[in-house]
């Protein structure tokens, strides 16, 4: 690891000021992804501004029923929070399915959102990667790509976003609060991450000096009946091949509200708007669920190693919706 300077920020204003003035400075949260990437030489900051001492650790109920989550709330604490467990079980489940207990005790909400892809070519300095080194090429295309994207990929990058939490947040219409020396702004989570296009190294709409300070969840009754289904080779401690975050409300056999998002399939948490459109107002049957999944995946394209993900996503969407339907919570 390269040597670097370290500053522990006493308050948000100092944190964002230092990162905006020091050249090549980065915020340091739990470090579970950043430290790993620095050790691999992928991330090479000159200064780290430790934000873990900032007072962004509250989980508060908002007037009107939403919830505001401080960006430095650790994943484990968020997953165990009674409010989240009862009102947004999909978020609890997504968090609990990610990484290991040790990592969840340290990883922050903000850091989780901006964690970087697990594409092996991105990690490997001897391989070509447009994300790591713009213009270098992509060794994953034509290489080993079983874990790669089937939606929204480009000829420059086929990496996926590895977060589980973000998939749940995408389904829940979360809003992200950002702070910089220029002030505060709010960005819908769905607009936070970018598809690779020609600039896969630009992964979010955050500027380099913007700090995620909070995530807000709206009041969302449908979320009480929600589930996160993560599919992977190993039973635990593995990234998703495909995951589905779903919330469903059914009255008299008809879908009255639904939220659906996919993980493991794209460079961002993938909100399944197309599928939702098919589902809303339709009968809650397996046939409709299949139709909805097909509508969403119509645009999916696979490579030799990862084409299976399209069928896997289709089946997982249907199975997750079925589960919500049959366990009675959606009714």
């Amino acid at each position: 690891m390269r040597p670097f300077g370290y500053v522990s920020a006493p308050d948000v204003a100092t944190a964002v000021r230092v990162v905006s003035t020091e050249p090549n400075a980065k915020f340091l949260g739990g470090g579970t992804n950043l430290v790993d990437l620095m050790r691999e030489g992928v991330e090479r900051p000159d200064t780290l501004v430790d934000v873990t001492g900032l007072p962004l650790t509250a989980i508060e109920e908002l007037p009107g029923g939403g919830v505001r989550i401080g960006a430095l709330v650790r994943n484990a604490r968020l997953a165990a929070d009674p409010l989240i467990r009862s009102r947004y079980p999909v978020l609890s489940r997504a968090l609990l399915s990610g990484a290991s207990a040790q990592l969840r005790n340290v990883a922050t909400v903000g850091g989780n959102l901006v964690q970087r892809t697990r594409c092996p070519y991105f990690y490997d300095h001897a391989s070509a990667c447009n994300k790591r080194e713009p213009g270098a090429g992509c060794d994953a295309i034509g290489g080993v790509n079983r874990n790669h994207a089937v939606l929204g990929a480009s000829e420059h990058c086929i990496a996926t976003h590895p977060s589980d939490m973000a998939v749940a947040l995408a389904a829940l219409d979360a809003v992200v609060e950002l702070e910089s020396v220029r002030g505060t702004r709010r960005v819908p989570l769905l607009d936070l991450h970018r598809l690779p296009g020609e600039t896969p190294h630009v992964e979010t709409v955050l500027t380099a000096d913007e700090l995620i300070t909070a995530v807000e969840l709206p009041h969302l009754p449908v979320a009480a009946a929600s589930h996160y289904r993560k599919v992977r080779d190993r039973a635990s401690y593995a990234f998703a091949l495909v995951s589905v975050a779903a919330a469903l409300h059914v009255r008299e056999g008809v879908v009255t509200d639904v939220r659906l998002a996919l993980g493991g399939v794209a460079a961002k948490p993938w909100r399944a708007h197309q599928a939702e459109r098919v589902l809303l107002g339709a009968e809650a049957t397996e046939e409709v669920f299949l139709r909805a999944a097909d509508a969403e995946l119509a645009a999916a394209t696979g490579l030799p190693d990862n084409t299976f993900k399209i069928e896997l996503a289709r089946r997982t969407i249907v199975a997750t919706l079925q589960e919500l339907l049959t366990d009675g919570s959606a009714a």
Partner: peptide, 14 residues
């Protein structure tokens, strides 16, 4: 391509 324990999957407890 997968020279590490995060990508070479040995069995875990579960």
């Amino acid at each position: 391509v997968n020279p590490g324990l995060a990508e070479y999957h040995v069995p875990v407890h579960a």
